[in-house]
Design a protein around this nucleic acid. Sequence first.
DNA 1: TCTTACGTTTGGACTTCGTCCAAATATCAA
DNA 2: TTGATATTTGGACGAAGTCCAAACGTAAGA
Lengths: 133, 133
Amino acid sequence: MHRPNPRQVLAEHGIRPSAHRLAVAEYVLATKEHPSADRVWKTVAESFPAISRATVYNTLNLFVEKGLLRELHLDPDSVVFDPKLETHHHFIDEATGAIHDIPWDRVQVCNLESMRGFNVREYQVVMRGTKRH
Amino acid sequence: MHRPNPRQVLAEHGIRPSAHRLAVAEYVLATKEHPSADRVWKTVAESFPAISRATVYNTLNLFVEKGLLRELHLDPDSVVFDPKLETHHHFIDEATGAIHDIPWDRVQVCNLESMRGFNVREYQVVMRGTKRH
DNA sequence: TCTTACGTTTGGACTTCGTCCAAATATCAA
DNA sequence: TTGATATTTGGACGAAGTCCAAACGTAAGA
């Protein structure tokens, strides 16, 4: 898998590379999960016990603002973060709550030109159902 | 506009028509807004001052469970309820936070048959941007 | 009508998620 | 090294929502 260098990613987005930010980036840019903020906090704290909750929230919000991460609001129970590498769609497994990324080209949205009157900056398809085993 | 009879809608969904539930249904089934739970509470309390917050939450959750309402998790700041009359897409105005319903047929999702391995029960397109004036 | 059983409502305590702030610390550039 | 600026801290705070036991309403049968 492509594993981005946290220090380099931060630099590319104009973010000062403090030790705490690097620790958060290391986890959050590489994970395949869609962790909640508190999940990030707990995970980073394993290798960095002194980090405070406020710092993790600050850092995640900064990353979203700078475009490293995307904030997803799909799930009834949690807000979740997603490395914003390339755009994609989402499938939510209603049985397990798991969120699956669906490659951008797998489905298409047609007739977007009918959205006159709206300035569509971004869009995605959100699907719900169950994953076949 | 088609304004459903709350008593009848409750009956169709097997929900006992208590006075409080009727008051909640009256507002929530007719509104064009996408109110949060607390918004519903405040509005219903105008005509029904004694209703408690727990009752409104109970009632909304019951309505969702019984299929009268859909719970939307689109917005960073709130969970919101939507009368589930017919399926539709959503456009979120990033400037104002307003949520607009987009008729189902206005855009189409193509190539859904590529979703082998997933049992897609429902889907929608979520768009973000700004509304042209 | 009265009783009984069950469904509904209440309000206040509690939890969880997230923000805010002023003080303490770290970092960068000169 | 020093000063200016950015970052981090932790605890208080606020908002959103759940839980629970007690109180209340209501429909159906005796």
